[in-house]
Design a protein around this nucleic acid. Structure first.
Length: 423
RNA sequence: GGAGAGAUGCCAGAGUGGUUGAAUGGGCCGGUCUCGAAAACCGUUUCCCGAUGAAAUCGGGACGAGGGUUCGAAUCCCUCUCUCUCCGCCA
């Protein structure tokens, strides 16, 4: 959520930058500003009435203590006037606050200067590519065939036991999951990220904090009885650790990592785009989150991009890094880099990570602050990224490294997997 | 799931209707002393909103959250959340 004072002081810039995200509801901005002005005019009236009542109450208290009952009763009547006033002002002010908040929640984060204009994924900017695309035989198999051939993943049982998008990993398929998770976590630990194993369900306040609510309600599984949401990503519990906290300056940067299954309802869409592991309702992911000094967040973003890039290089996968255009970015992000790996038998680029800087958009909602050296309260900047989401990595590993007799695994996984290939 | 107790500042903990944003102790920070440190002593130390920005100052609000009673609530009442103790169930 944007800070209202920033909107007021930089209205033209806000409008200009929101246009990059194809947000053009200028009326909404004007409404917010005029509502906030109204609120500011109103506040003193309430404060005054309160002050008067407080004074009178103190006087009444003294009369009571001195036992001047008659005077007390006489003056007591005067409080009614203020009470009625206060009640009226209060409800109007609350109404204004609610309306302002409600409207503020509808405004997306401002995109960074470097965000390209555009509406569709085709307009994302390719920053760089790396790795080598493999040369596969004509009869190379897509991963869902390979998964069946080597008995790694069983989609049919998943369909029966739960539903589509909930596969069973089996045998070496299950072990590969375990190996990847372990490797990713170790890799993140090595870069100074503190490991957490968070809850897989969160309450409503947490879902608001990271921005899943109010508008993305339909994407999350919901436990009605307890009002819990199944997490769509570890970002939600990890970042919310610090909700409503004032952290010490010397604690920054805070670097967190965690493995969790992720649950996404992702209504609709069947067919070849979602075959096999391409899109699931439940999948495994290792996430990284950082809370940092505002001035350092873009340096940290680059650092995180390099971190993920190195991971893909270690996995020996062909990849490319995209800077998302305004239209493809998420509501809360100021700048997002997507990572895609090339899955050679489909053949297709698959998104495996998304690394974003949210600046103060999340921390303002969550009130994650620190006191700077000059004793000023400041919001931290929050960033997160996947390192990495498993299913599409598995798809690419299987497809790209297939041979006639098996699937070769990259060197970094040999020890974790306990073998050099799947056969 | 049943019964009971509780939630106060960075921490411990007092306060059970009236100048209490909050005693006291500890911690933190600053100072005196010291070559330096410890000890001792002194001082400081919550956050939000508003008064056009900053500082100072002033006003309002916040004692788990939300509502209520009252001229006045940390203190009384209701609902919720969480914690602890005992019992039950349980990987």
């Amino acid at each position: 959520m944007l800070q209202i004072n920033f909107i007021k002081n930089n209205k033209e810039e806000v409008i200009k930058r929101l246009a990059v995200k194809n947000f053009t509801d200028i009326n909404l901005i004007d409404e917010i500003i005029s509502l906030d002005n109204e609120r500011k005019e109103f506040q003193p009236f309430l404060n005054n009435a309160q002050e008067n009542l407080n004074k009178l109450s103190r006087e009444l208290g003294q009369l009571k203590q001195k036992g001047k009952e008659e005077e007390f009763q006489k003056n007591k009547l005067r409080t009614n006037f203020y009470k009625i006033q206060i009640e009226g002002f209060n409800s109007q002010l609350k109404d204004l606050d609610d309306r302002i908040n409600h409207k503020l929640l509808l405004i997306p984060n401002l995109p960074h200067d470097s965000v390209p204009k555009g509406k569709t994924p085709e307009e994302n900017e390719i920053v760089r590519e790396g790795g080598k695309k493999p040369l596969l035989d004509q009869q190379a198999f897509p991963h869902w065939e390979l998964a069946k051939k080597y008995d790694l993943i069983n989609f049919e049982i998943g369909n029966k036991v739960t539903g589509s998008g909930f596969p069973f990993y089996k045998n070496k398929g299950a072990k590969l999951q375990r190996a990847l998770i372990q490797y990713f976590l170790d890799y993140n630990n090595g870069a100074g990220y503190t490991e957490y194993e968070p809850p897989l369900m969160v309450n409503e306040a947490s879902a608001y904090g990271t921005g899943q609510l109010p508008d993305k309600e339909g994407q999350m599984y919901f436990i009605n009885e307890d009002k819990f949401y199944l997490i769509p990503t570890a970002e939600v519990p990890l970042t919310n650790i610090y909700r409503d906290e004032i952290v010490k300056e010397n604690e920054l940067p805070i670097k967190l990592t965690g493995y969790t299954p992720c649950f996404r309802r992702e209504a609709g869409s069947y067919g070849k785009d979602v075959r096999g592991l391409n899109r699931l309702h439940q999948f495994d992911k290792v996430e990284i989150v950082q809370l940092v000094y505002p001035e350092k967040s873009y340096t940290v973003l680059e650092e995180m991009v390099n971190h993920v890039e190195k991971l893909l290089q270690n996995l020996e996968l062909p990849y490319r890094i995209l800077r998302l255009c305004g239209g493809d970015m998420s509501f809360a992000s100021a700048l997002t880099y997507d990572f895609e790996v090339y899955s050679a038998a489909q053949p297709k680029w698959l998104e495996v990570s998304s690394v974003s800087n949210f600046e103060t958009f999340q921390s303002n909602r969550m009130k994650i602050r620190f006191k700077s050296a000059d004793n000023k309260m400041q919001l931290v900047h929050s960033l997160n990224g996947s390192s990495l989401a498993l299913p599409r990595i598995v798809a690419a590993l299987l497809e790209n490294n297939q041979t006639k007799d098996g699937i070769n695994l990259p060197k970094v996984l040999h020890n974790y997997f306990g073998a050099t290939e799947i056969n």
